[in-house]
């Protein structure tokens, strides 16, 4: 089940002080992702797979980060969720 389709997945986040570094980390870790900006929110879309990495977020916010914290500022997602301590992944399985 490692294969993924290339159908788009996305995460939409509120834009606020908490998500600045989160968005930066996501864009860094997912070079194929595109950022769409709307009033008060962004939508990050990627073909097939999108990952949020705890380490990348922590490097940018300078403290430890529990990936479940992203739920505070998430507006919506598309794709199937897989969540561990280190990575929050959205993908479509084949």
């Amino acid at each position: 089940m490692n294969a993924t389709s290339s159908q788009p997945v996305f995460i939409a986040l509120q834009t606020n002080n908490d998500t600045l570094s989160l968005i930066e980390a996501i864009l860094f870790d997912n070079p194929q992702a595109t950022l769409e900006e709307y009033p008060a929110m962004v939508r990050i879309v990627a073909p097939g797979r999108l990952v949020v990495r705890r380490e990348s977020v922590e490097e940018r916010i300078g403290r430890s980060f529990d990936l479940r914290e992203i739920q505070l500022n998430t507006i919506s997602i598309a794709g199937e969720v897989d969540e561990t301590e280190d990575e929050f992944t959205l993908c479509w399985k084949l």
């Binding site: 008060a40 998430t74 507006i75």
Partner: peptide, 30 residues
């Protein structure tokens, strides 16, 4: 409902509504 419409609430200066909207939507992802 919650993405384009609530984003529109923000755009129209309604910080209270956009906040409850997005706060609700953060549950919606779950």
């Amino acid at each position: 409902v919650f993405m384009p419409w609530m984003s529109g609430a923000a755009y129209n200066g309604d910080m209270a509504t956009v906040t409850f909207g997005f706060s609700a939507q953060s549950d919606e992802a779950r």
